[in-house]
Design a protein around this nucleic acid. Structure first.
Lengths: 337, 337
DNA sequence: CTGTTAGCGCCTTCAT
DNA sequence: ATGAAGGCGCTAACAG
């Protein structure tokens, strides 16, 4: 059965459709009696306004799009959680674009902000590339970037993490425990998605080594696809070296878990024979007693949405770039050499 | 700057709007030369069709809404992953309604299917209540339910899990290992969200006991809010009983992790002093070596979307109710008594 | 093949 | 305070 329209309500209530629209939008310009009559008819017909028509007429979509890579990974989920919670407080619906291929990444980044299907778009952990810049310049909807870096981003609102500093903290912690043979294990640094976090953490690691006058050893540097299993394989290889590291810094907690498995496989005790530090402080990290660098995932999503809604609803101000802090969380997988 | 409309393109290309619309929709009824001219102008003006207008005109939204409780919990994420992957293959966008309060649950269940903001809605792990039935009956968009139970659902497509059977398998596994003092720990059975899974698993547990002639002991039955910490508290209490259980069946892997912690706190070895079995087989379960009941989370989401898209795009057929199997996965947290 | 026209359902002036 | 009319941008049916 065809559902009722505003016209049906108007006819049934014996008023013009403008009046119905006015009661729907809580205009004061309706007398109490007609308002009540209209409401009664609305109820009777189970009338619900057509949101698509409303959007077209208003020129707003009342939804916010989020573009997020691999949204099922714990760290991204945690960011999304911050996004979702903040959005539920507002009137915006949430539409999610999950990105797992470079093709989809390009499509989303270029098209979503133009397709007027959202009043604003939040892009998480995905940085643009030079080729994307022209698209971004003629964007319809405001964009806020979380955990993204690129020269062209100066004109946007952003929330970022100082991963260089975080990486440095991690390595420094190990150094302070007396380690000098420190491995680093991460995603592929030059990945097609242009993720920047691993690169930055790597840089922090290098800086810490340098500050401590520890020469960098290429054999202690492993990169591969993301995932526990891949990390386990890489770590195994590193731990089978003649002169194996006494500590490993994994660029994510998930990868740190793989390193723990590798140690287990080889009969190395953690942290007795091998210290391990992760990054992110995802939920299981505490359960596992994993030493790690905490970043404020939830808050970054939350703050991103706040900035986005602000720019949607008020005049654009000077773009800001907020830096979220990181924190060393010492648990049971690191120890003095 | 105001973005170009179909009218601008038509004017610029010196054709009627109908023609532009036709090239946009790949109609054959356009000559090659005009098509090319129009495409050139589209490119030149960076024209992108307004999707809201398109939706209004077509009477379709080209999006699918998913209502999911606590979407950051691992098991729900896994279902969502199945949903998302299947949807990415299609032309539908995904809009997510996360439910964390009863109020929101009611709003979503009653309003989302009527608000014509989606061509179909998928409801995960949330069952309707008697009061919802009238709303569901005058629904606009087709609904598919995954992991939901209620008398009124016979007229809908569904994907369910036989949690009674799963619960029974879990308890039976412990019984076969020689345990007779078997605890059961779960969410609150009569919860306001009307989740049915814990209740069903409990029922399976009771059936297994009965089949084995093991009397049910109320003290071995603990329920509380969902979460690792809550489970840990409940398990501690149960394990401090005079006559503590030798095995515990936790209704989710997350809760099983809490039980493991409780055992750890009390100096009980697992599985030496205490066998533990979980439910779901979430990703970390393997890492932790947790014995559990696997349910096909990813596939349930996937199948749900398939059913939904089928009913959207073709004539409604006889509603189906598919039952997903469960499987016992034996790892290292259960052992012979 | 192509231009024109009539909606899709709602919001917002503009009169009254 | 309220009814009528125009328009949001697009699709589809109708003439040519």
């Amino acid at each position: 059965m065809k559902s009722a329209t505003i016209r049906d309500v108007a006819r049934q209530a014996g008023v013009g459709l403008g009046t119905v629209s006015r009661v729907l939008n809580n205009s004061h310009l309706v007398s109490k009696t007609t308002r009540e009559r209209v409401l009664a008819v609305i109820d009777e017909l189970h009338y619900v306004p057509n949101i698509t028509a409303r959007r077209l007429s208003l020129g707003k979509t009342l939804t916010i799009a989020v573009i997020v890579p691999f949204f099922t990974r714990p760290a991204f989920i945690e960011r999304l959680r911050g996004v979702e919670h903040t959005l539920t407080e507002s009137d915006y619906d949430l539409i999610i674009y999950n990105v797992e291929t470079v093709k989809r990444r390009d499509e989303c980044m270029r098209e979503v902000p133009q397709r007027d299907l959202a009043d604003g778009v939040l892009i998480l952990s995905l940085s643009p590339q030079d080729e994307d810049v022209p698209y971004l310049e003629r964007t319809e909807a405001p964009i806020v970037w979380v955990d993204a870096n690129h020269a062209s981003l100066a004109s946007f609102n952003r929330v970022i993490v100082d991963d260089v500093e975080g990486g440095q903290k991690a390595a420094q912690h190990l150094i302070e425990l007396g380690h000098r043979q420190i491995g680093f294990l991460s995603d592929v640094l030059e990945d097609p998605f242009n993720f920047t976090s691993s690169r930055d953490r790597y840089q922090g690691y290098r800086q810490a080594l340098e500050l401590a006058d520890i020469p960098f050893q290429p054999a202690y540097h492993a990169q591969g696809n993301h995932g526990r299993y891949e990390a386990r394989v890489l770590a195994t290889k590193m731990l089978e070296l003649e002169n194996r590291p006494t500590a490993i810094f994994a660029a994510s907690d998930t990868q740190a878990m793989g390193v723990v498995e590798a140690a287990r496989d080889l009969g190395l005790s953690v942290p007795g024979d091998l210290s391990i530090i992760g990054y992110d402080d995802i939920e299981v990290a505490e359960y596992l007693g994993l030493t790690t660098i905490r970043q404020m995932l939830y808050e970054s999503g939350q703050r991103g949405v706040e900035l986005l809604i602000n720019t949607i609803e008020s005049k654009p101000k000077q773009p800001v770039c907020e830096v979220m802090p990181t924190e060393l969380i010492v648990r049971q997988t690191t120890a003095k050499l």
